[in-house]
Each structure stands twice: as C-alpha cells, then as structure tokens.
Design a binder for these strands. Structure first.
Length: 288
DNA sequence: GTCCGGTCTC
DNA sequence: GAGACCGGAC
C-alpha cells in the first residue's frame, strides 16, 4: 500500500485554508464549539456565528450559566438546532464533571452530549495534539478512492478508523496534519462530484485513478424535499419562538398560518420531545 | 431542484 | 443498522 502521508502533508502546507480554529492557541473550547457548528453546516456559514458565540460565552462555564433558550436563540439559523441544546448540555457536563476544562481523553469526550466518534477525536487531535485517527466524510471519500479504488465510500463503519490509523505516522504532530490534510483534500480537491484529479497530490498513487475512474455506484440516499416537509414546519415554529425573545407564544398563535394544521401540531410535539420547546399553560416557549 | 453532513434514537 | 434532523449555496 502506498504511503499517502508525505504527499498529504506537503500539499496541506501549501493549500490549507486559513480558518479561525486552525490558529495557534485557539483553545480547546473554541475547537469544540467550532466542531459542533461544523457537524452539519458549511464553513462559510459557521465563521460569523462562531465568533459571536465565543465572544458571548468564552468558556464552558460561561455557556453553562446561560439558559438553554439563550443557546437556541444564539444558534439562530445554523440548522439542526438540537446541536445548540447538546452543546449547552456538554458545557454543563464539562463544568460539573471536568472542572470547566474541556477533557482531553477520547472516552471522556465521547461521554459528553452531542459528541460522537468524529468530534471526540477532532478535539483530542486538533486542540490537544494527541495521536488518533480523525475520520469525517471527506476522509472516507479520499480513502475510498486512493486506497480502495471506489468512486464513493461505503456506509460509515468502525473500519474507517482503522484504515486512517494505518496511514498515520508515529509522530503525533505530523499525524494531526495528516488527519487535517485528508479532510481538506476531500473538501477542496477530492470532492464528491467534479473532483479535481489533475491537481491532486495523490494522483500518482491513487487506486481509483489507476483503475480508470470507474463509476462504482453511490449508495447514498437521496434527500427528501425540504419544501413542505416536517423539517420545514419545525424550522418555522422554532424561528417564531426564537423571535419571541423571552416571551411564550399562545399555542394557537404558533405557526398560525401554516397550511397544514396537523403537520404544525406534529412539529410542535416533536420540538417538545426533543427538549427544544416547552408547553406551559397553553403557551409554547424555548426551554428555560 | 439538488446537495452537504455527525449524532442521536429506536 | 436505518432513519430523523436543518437551512443556505449552487
């Protein structure tokens, strides 16, 4: 198997984007907040929200002192608002279980609300410089192509971590760069559609290229339409609650103009079930 | 209209 | 292991 690491490291040195969370001394809390926001939201939309969030809550303890409602409001339109609730819970857990310090151990990070395999290792590696494989969807695609000769990765699996681990050099600092470089290459060059293979630092050793770029199929499910969906209904209800500021909204006034009353009620129920809204005496509000 | 994505719940 | 979940960019 070819050694991809040196080519990745050299390419990253010249091509990495200058992103805020990559600045030296950005801090583990900043890295953790950025990773929460980046879990489902593109870089360009995250940056202004990240700056504002960290200015308001520069430490886990500061966020833990705020209410969940404040966190959901500040999350604004980043999408998937459960992440705001989870980030707030994680801050409370960090205050209560780790004396306000973002933990360094992967198993302790995994035990925090909203942190899974990717984020736990991203914090341990990018904030603390430890030696672990970090695998996101970009890395999985790079490895599927360069190593397995497949156009798209298969379903996520624990094997992904072992595959990335096998590529990492022994030195922790260099292995962190290799992790970051694989993700960055997948984001900028080895993209899902329209990959820029002529610019790729791995082209000389890429199994997919060697095989003639076969279309090996794409197992990803097509996303359902957003317009008219339950998701859109939830978004509309939550937007109204955010904009009501500190106030509760009479249930009958919640998304009153939504065309499908049953769908609106489903949205309200699911938001309450997720802890994103509270129903009190015929009114709906963000969680205190 | 189509695409992007990590974690949770069941 | 499968399905739910957001909103903006293109």
């Amino acid at each position: 198997m070819p050694d991809l690491a040196p080519a990745l490291v050299a390419w990253y040195r010249d091509n990495a984007r200058d992103l805020p969370w990559r600045a030296p001394g950005f801090g583990a809390w900043g890295v953790l907040v950025s990773e929460f926001m980046l879990q489902q939201t593109p870089v360009n939309r995250v940056i202004p929200h990240l700056d504002a969030w960290l200015a308001l809550w520069p430490t886990p303890a500061a966020l833990a002192k705020a209410s969940p409602a404040d966190a959901v409001r500040q999350w604004a339109n980043l999408g998937y608002p459960r992440r705001a609730l989870w980030l707030h819970r994680a801050a409370v857990e960090i205050r209560d279980r780790h004396e306000g310090i973002v933990p360094r151990q992967v198993d302790q990070l995994l035990a925090l609300t909203g942190i899974g395999d990717y984020t736990a290792r991203a914090v341990a590696v990018f904030a603390y410089g430890d030696h672990h494989p970090v695998v996101d969807t970009n890395t999985r695609r790079v490895l599927a192509r360069a190593i397995d000769g497949q156009a798209q990765p298969g379903p996520p699996s624990r094997r992904d971590l072992a595959a990335m681990d096998a590529l990492l050099p022994a030195d922790a600092a260099t292995s962190a760069v290799v992790n970051a470089a694989a993700m960055e290459l997948g984001a900028l060059v080895c993209t899902a559609r329209g990959p820029r293979c002529t610019e790729c630092p791995l082209r000389a050793m890429c199994a997919w290229r060697a095989a003639g770029y076969p279309d090996t199929g794409d197992t990803r499910r097509r996303q359902a339409r957003y317009e008219g969906s339950d998701r859109q209904a939830r978004g509309a209800v939550l937007k109204q609650l955010r904009e009501a500021s500190e106030h509760a909204v009479p249930i009958d006034d919640v998304a009153a103009d939504w065309p499908d009353a049953l769908q609106r009620d489903r949205a309200i129920d699911s938001l309450v079930a997720d802890g994103l809204a509270e129903a009190v005496r015929g009114e709906l509000r963000l969680p205190r």
